[in-house]
Amino acid sequence: MQSIPDIIRTIPLAHYILLSSALFCIGILGVLTRRNAIIVFMAIELMLNAVNLLLAAFSSYYSDPSGQIFVFFIMAVAAAEVAVGLAIIVMIYRNIQSIDIGILNKLKN
């Protein structure tokens, strides 16, 4: 039975990097193009997941657990972030009955 690192190593490292980068870019594109705050937020989560994926890949590739531990930290913190973020979005929705980020431009110049 092959060890997991060995399985992972069957795919070249560059492919992981490219995949994660693509995911990351998709996340960025999502942030750029969407106007709904929740979807923007989801796009950001996608970016974080791209990071997670890459971290896990590196970690396995190098047989170094610290990368995967980092992934846990990211997930935990992201959860906290989600809690706060959704709270903010709810707060805004209460005030203006909309979560369109394009409307929010009172603060400028």
Partner: peptide, 19 residues
């Protein structure tokens, strides 16, 4: 509303930057 807006902006951009 200003505070709300600030929070959302900060949050979205901050999270983006964290990414």
């Amino acid at each position: 509303l200003k505070s709300n807006e600030a929070a959302l902006k900060y949050f979205l951009m901050g999270a983006f930057a964290t990414g």
